[in-house]
């Protein structure tokens, strides 16, 4: 059951990416191209996607926060709060890669369905980057509570 629920959630997420056109790198790069604002060439679509996503998630999270999850013993809300160097360095590296191509992890994986050779190369490289990080910092020796606290911002 948890796997079926998870499959459904993945599908809804993917449908959101497809309907909002966030699977298209041109839409994402059009938003990131803020220097095009004066000429009228800027595409604010991503702002609306985020705003709608935040509205629904914010209200939904607030409503279900006190509840236990249906298919798990407890919710794994992130508890880390420090704005530390790994967070900022990681975000900067991610942003550079995002700006180079216009793909972040969700759209990249959804776009595998198009069998685009470029997307396949991107996702393989992304997986290598993730695995390389976890080889370097496996986080294996941390106690479970701490692992929970730091592992699941997203």
């Amino acid at each position: 059951m948890p796997a079926i629920a998870s499959l459904l959630c993945g599908f809804i997420f993917g449908a959101g990416l497809v309907i909002s056109h966030m699977v298209q790198t041109t839409k994402v790069l059009g938003f990131l191209d803020v220097l095009a604002i004066p000429s009228g060439g800027w595409d604010p679509t991503l702002v609306v996607v985020m705003a709608a996503g935040l509205l629904v998630t914010g209200i939904g999270y607030a409503l279900i926060r006190p509840r236990q999850p249906i298919f798990a013993p407890r919710s794994q809300w992130p508890t880390a709060s420090a704005i530390d160097r790994p967070l900022l360095a990681g975000a900067a590296l991610f942003g550079i890669g995002w700006g180079l191509v216009g793909l972040c992890p969700g759209p990249a994986i959804a776009d595998l369905a198009t069998l685009s050779p470029g997307v396949i190369v991107f996702v393989v490289a992304m997986a290598v980057g993730m695995a390389a990080h976890d080889l370097w910092q496996p986080g294996a020796d941390r106690p479970v509570e701490q692992k929970l606290a730091t592992a699941t911002d997203g």
Partner: peptide, 15 residues
Amino acid sequence: AVAGLLVGFGTRLGN
């Protein structure tokens, strides 16, 4: 490939 590596490594480092 460079962009993919940066996105993969960066999102893990930055959680």
